[in-house]
């Protein structure tokens, strides 16, 4: 009885969200009284497995054949199913990234199990582990139990501080399996090129909302972001208007972030946006409408038009 952590790789690199999942596995391991293994599948899997052997896992499995070289839910799901079947894991977890959200329900379907999305914590219950997860755009925290044979879950990255290399020496083993007919092919990534840090890794985020108005306003937010070394985010309204790409969207249906400093520019604070940023350590809101709900979650609010206040802020922090 133990835990399987599914690492996330893209283009031979380990995604940092994996360290939060390892941290979550350690918390769950304390509650459930068991250890954990890791599966690193994808091109460069062996190197990533080597990179992960100091994090306290029993065994780090890797697979890097042609079928799993690039991620597809079909291939990686079939591989994970084979490993779970082989080793009899009681718990399987991955990050609640777009990849984890794609993969884990498929794995649950393959195993004929239920699963829990966006786990933020767990505790010991009467019959097993009780998981905590947000629902209704973060306006409720649900306590949930699963009664199947395997507890599958995605883990919210921001709820667990990344695990550190503790100098352990996990075993590293290759694991391959017959994946059957896949019916799906990865074609290519079209990654958004940016010199700024990514939203989920940045310690400072500056986000644009409808009050930023236009391309000129967006350019000002970008300048502020560069001056602060910050990632840029946006509300759904700005994404819908086509002013920024969708992967900058912060909110219930976009990225969930929790930086040290979150600056909301011209963002009204709709429920679905607040769901994505309310766990930030310090929140600043600049909005000309003093009734805007964003001020209810802000530590520091400035009632002002963004075009003017943003330009002044840029001068003051230079």
């Amino acid at each position: 009885m133990s835990i399987l952590v599914i690492a996330e790789l893209r283009e031979s690199e380990l995604k940092s969200a994996t360290f939060s999942v390892i941290a979550a596995a350690k918390v769950l391991g304390e509650v459930a009284g068991c250890g954990f293994d890791i599966l690193a599948a994808g091109a460069g899997g062996a190197a990533v497995a080597d990179q992960l052997k100091g994090y306290g896992a029993g065994t780090v499995y890797f697979s890097e054949g042609a079928e799993v070289a690039d991620y597809t839910a079909e291939a990686h799901g079939a591989l994970a199913k084979a490993l779970v079947g082989d080793k009899g894991y009681k718990y399987v977890m991955a990050a609640a990234t777009t990849t984890g959200k794609d993969l884990m329900p498929r794995l649950a379907g393959l195993l004929d199990e239920a699963m829990i999305s966006d786990v933020i914590g767990c505790e010991k219950g009467d019959g097993g582990v009780v998981y905590l997860r947000p629902m209704y755009a973060g306006n409720a925290i649900a306590k949930v139990v699963l009664s199947g044979n395997v507890d599958l879950m995605t883990v919210r990255e921001t709820a667990f501080d990344p695990a550190q290399d503790e100098g352990s020496a996990s075993g590293v083993e290759q694991f391959d399996a017959d994946l059957g007919e896949l019916k799906a092919r990865f074609i290519e990534f079209r990654l958004t090129k940016s010199d700024r840090p990514s939203l989920t890794e940045a310690s400072v985020i500056i986000s644009a909302g409808r009050g930023v108005k236009d391309a000129e306003g967006i350019a000002l937010v970008e300048k502020l972001a560069d001056q602060l070394g910050a990632a840029m985010g946006a509300s759904r309204a700005v994404v819908d208007e086509g002013l920024v790409p969708n992967d900058l969207q912060v909110g219930q249906t976009g990225k969930i972030v929790a930086p040290d400093l979150y600056i909301a520019c011209g963002i009204s604070g709709a429920i679905q946006h607040v769901a994505g940023m309310k766990d930030s350590k310090v929140i600043v809101a600049i909005n000309k409408d003093e009734e805007a709900p964003i001020f209810e979650v802000a530590d520091y609010g400035l009632v002002a038009d963004f075009a003017k206040a943003g330009a002044e802020l840029l001068e003051k922090i230079k």
Binding site: R10, T97, I187, F189, R190, T200, D247
Partner: peptide, 11 residues
Amino acid sequence: EIDGGLEVKEV
């Protein structure tokens, strides 16, 4: 739509 950009997939 994936983290960091777009992915093209054929099914």
